[in-house]
Write a protein that binds this DNA or RNA. Structure first.
Lengths: 202, 202
DNA sequence: GAATATAGCGAACGATCGTTCGTAAGGTAA
DNA sequence: TTACCTTACGAACGATCGTTCGCTATATTC
């Protein structure tokens, strides 16, 4: 008895820690992650948990990276392979809203938005990682808008950065209404707003 | 020597605590407020600080209420007295953006947005207060849009709730870009987006 | 089979958390 | 002056924080 873990299982342990930390952070924030609570939840010792990362900050970085991976998988990967253009942009927006609206895939709402709000005023590696991810996403979004312009789906004089800015705002606002007010109409309102911003509405 | 406080000063002490707590929460969140740090900053004992509130949660509630007061003073009060209509709505939006963009009046960004992100997934009185304030603000915003419709400045079939939803999204998104990316163009982008949402742009 | 590396444990560390208690010092009212 | 009431203090409380240490047990490599 007393089944010991193999080296294979060890990698899985780290993933399990990060996975659980993602859940904890979803409700209590990245700073609300606690080694002790994490250890209790996983039936491990505190030393066993922190041993995989060395530092809480490293654990936070790993947790945030995992959340970004989920976002990548649930939103961005949904449109890879589609031809550039307005269809692809709108499909990206729909996947984005799906992500925000699905409590299973994004419990606690958009992880990036929450982390941005939590760390925007503090120094450190976590802040830098969050800011970098936010900038990367905004730039990706703008590239999709530009692609729609290049495809002739949007006017040539479109301010692509402005469109990306507005789409991001609608998403963040939709996330707030969903999480704080649990308004079931938020997704539909966000979708209508995004289509209007993209000029795909009367 | 050793100047003792009068009963007059006592009220001022409570205000000083809340004021300092507002600053602390602006960077570390309402949960990041610490009795010990508060006491150190104010040159008081921990017991002297918590004695005014009894509980940290009560202190958080007082701090949030103070932040709401600032918002009321800086944004809403700026348009009281103006005749209802599109002018008043746009003036409200401008005051809103001013509030978001002024690091002195709102250090750490929009307090309500930050508190919403921090407490949207937790139970308790603070969550309830934040949710209530958020709902109140959205309803007030919608009332301003409806007033503009009634004044004939906006089409009669305007979806006032949708407009309020979009304005809120733009504001929250503008706040995120200002706080996380320190982009000086964010205010102007927000203003353009709001005017477009209100139909006040070509 | 011997040597090495890795994973995880239990225990302990100093620090800080929110909160409680008893007390001293002033202001206020009799 | 006497009797309160408020304000704030110092000290201590149990709990929990992140982190470190030495040790055991397994897996891997020679």
């Amino acid at each position: 008895m007393s089944p010991r873990r193999s080296a294979q299982d060890t990698l899985a342990t780290r993933d399990k820690i990060v996975d659980r930390a993602r859940l904890l952070a979803a409700s209590d924030g990245l700073e609300g992650i606690t080694i002790g609570r994490l250890a209790d939840d996983l039936g491990m010792s505190k030393a066993g948990v922190i041993g995989h990362f060395g530092t809480k900050e490293t654990l936070q970085l790993a947790t945030f990276a995992a959340a970004v991976d989920v976002f990548q998988h649930e939103v961005i990967d949904r449109v890879t392979g589609m031809p550039p253009g307005l269809d692809r942009l709108l499909r990206l927006c729909a996947a984005w809203l799906d992500y925000l609206d699905d409590g299973n895939v994004s419990p606690g709402g958009c992880f990036l938005t929450a982390a941005a709000s939590e760390f925007d005023g503090r120094p450190g590696q976590v802040h830098d990682a969050v800011a970098k991810a936010g900038r990367r996403w905004l730039r990706f979004l703008e590239a999709q808008v530009r692609a729609a312009v290049d495809a002739g789906d949007l006017p040539g004089d479109t301010d692509t950065e402005q469109i990306a800015f507005e789409l991001n705002g609608i998403a963040v606002g939709t996330n707030q209404v969903i999480q704080l007010h649990h308004d079931p109409r938020a997704r539909e309102r966000g979708w209508r707003a995004m289509r209007r911003v993209c000029g795909a509405l009367g």
